[in-house]
């Protein structure tokens, strides 16, 4: 396979930012809605044209993952322990540098790669990982 993947990945991230969000659910949904959110969040996280988290992070069930960032969930710490609330996780994804200086994650929210709602769904998905 001879596609230049980085080009693909990063360009699609940019293109992804321009398309419209198909998901309307809130990050605080319960029960069956929550299962739906988690699935939608996983799809967004894996989608090369959206979160494309696998470019840099291993995630359960993901293939061809990079290792620029830590494998998620990180060994020995749950997302609950690390971020306390889902809102803080969303805030981190939206603007990692604001939470800790010198962060090297893309600023998915601040740079409008993903919407706040999409980040909420991804947070629902991450929150569900054990």
């Amino acid at each position: 396979m001879k596609i230049h993947l980085l080009q693909y990945i990063t360009r699609s991230l940019v293109i992804g930012a321009m398309s419209i969000v198909p998901f309307g659910a809130s990050a605080l949904a319960e029960g069956a809605d929550m299962t739906k959110n988690i699935d939608a969040g996983r799809t967004l996280a894996f989608d090369r044209a959206k979160g494309n988290c696998l470019a840099c992070h291993a995630l359960p069930g993901g293939t061809m993952a990079g290792d620029v960032g830590p494998a998620l969930p990180m060994k020995g710490v749950t997302f609950q322990q690390m971020f306390q609330t889902k809102e803080k996780l969303v805030a981190f994804l939206a603007d990692p540098e604001k939470m800790f200086p010198y962060a090297n994650m893309p600023e998915f929210g601040k740079n409008k790669v993903l919407t706040h709602e999409e980040l909420g769904l991804i947070a629902d998905y991450l929150w569900s990982l054990k």
Binding site: L6, A55, D67
Partner: peptide, 8 residues
């Protein structure tokens, strides 16, 4: 490090 399958 790997960015997907490319070594930086």
């Amino acid at each position: 490090k790997y960015l997907r399958d490319q070594i930086i």
